[in-house]
Design a binder for these strands. Structure first.
Lengths: 208, 208
DNA sequence: TCTCAAATCTAGACAGTGTAAAGTTAAAGC
DNA sequence: GCTTTAACTTTACACTGTCTAGATTTGAGA
């Protein structure tokens, strides 16, 4: 029954070929489908067509897989922020608006992935790749708010107030929206993102 | 062996007396101990000294219990916000600072309970008591930011920008801090709450 | 006081979960 | 071609939530 003639190995092999990548894809799909709370390693393996214990060879455990997913999430966020800033106009306020919109757009496009990023009990927060991507995202914000020439200081330093304020404002707004703080109406949420968010950013006294 | 003479029934009865309340207490303790992710209905029952299925009579399921806990959380937050405003000075900026500090203090004092409030997939977001307490908390913020005389409008209304901005800023800051966005150093976090948060609120253009 | 129904809890079971240990298969290295 | 090693399966165990049926206690009515 099984045709073994195909050069491209489509039929199920014992060795998968690139199971690691396949698992990540399954996991991303599962996450998007069911959300963070309903995520399951077994279901991920099932979707990839392998046994429940197969992932262990590529990720130590669920935590390991989720660490990889969170890293991907931070990569995508950092990319989105950098791109939005590169494409934006020259004046600061519109650049701030563009980056805020990019942040919100990313979160609304992949809410489960965005939620995972902040479920720090679920993955390894000290993972070096994850930290790098997270720092890249943060730097993108900081570079815009405090200026490319501003000296790097610890997060808790008073000089960081504008950056953290900007980040907090947008992050908080997005979280409240996704987590039911601003009602459940999807249309109202979209409208809030389009009109309310820029207005809110405009209330912030940022000048560099 | 068992002394039945005590008027106050201390020994273990088949009927617990007030299992509902006991379960809530166990659940709150468990939540504080292990966090939201590690919460378990069976463990809650175990701590209350009853069988795994006992909670069903008082809460339909885990979701039901968590809805009760989230309602308690919103009640406490609303209380804290109202009290802080009642005790604060008269000028707007210090009142804003006080309420922001109260919000942060609540979240830092009970991080797991605070986290639960926004895990909207875990409980019944349409519960009428929960909605009432949540609205009370929101009204406390809105009353301060937009003034007691300001007309009530939908959340997405442009007039809401100051309120949502204020809430988003503080909420986002607290979330970032609890979820590792601002590093893991507890001392730095405490310092950030004391010095950075007021500075950030000061950056907001609020006048009513 | 006795009885009986309702409320409350226990016991047992089932389908899920994560993951550890041991066995099987295929590929790679010599 | 043979052996080693990596990749995967199988099996098993301890958890989880929740369903069912049954046991116990309480309280209300006769």
């Amino acid at each position: 029954m099984e045709r073994k003639l195909n050069v491209v190995k489509i039929e199920k092999n014992y060795h998968h070929g690139d199971l690691r990548q396949a698992l990540i894809q399954s996991a991303l799909a599962l996450l998007a489908d069911k959300g963070v709370e309903a995520f399951s390693l077994r279901e991920t393996a099932r979707r990839a067509g392998v046994s429940p214990a197969a992932p262990k060879h590529h990720f130590k455990d669920t935590r390991g897989l989720l660490t990889a997913l969170a890293t991907i999430a931070f990569t995508r966020l950092a990319d989105a922020l950098e791109e939005s800033d590169a494409a934006a106009a020259q004046d600061l306020s519109s650049r701030l608006g563009a980056q805020g919109a990019a942040y919100a757009a990313f979160a609304l496009a992949e809410p489960a992935l965005f939620a995972l990023m902040w479920r720090t009990a679920m993955f390894d927060l000290t993972d070096i790749n994850l930290l790098a991507e997270k720092a890249r995202a943060f730097d993108s914000i900081d570079r815009l708010v405090r200026g490319a020439a501003a000296p790097r200081v610890p997060h808790a330093d008073p000089a960081m107030a504008p950056t953290i304020a900007c980040w907090s404002l947008v992050h908080g707004f997005v979280c409240l929206m996704l987590d039911g703080g601003l009602g459940e109406d999807r249309d109202a949420q979209a409208q809030a993102t389009d009109t309310l968010l820029p207005a809110m950013i405009g209330l912030l006294n940022i000048r560099n």
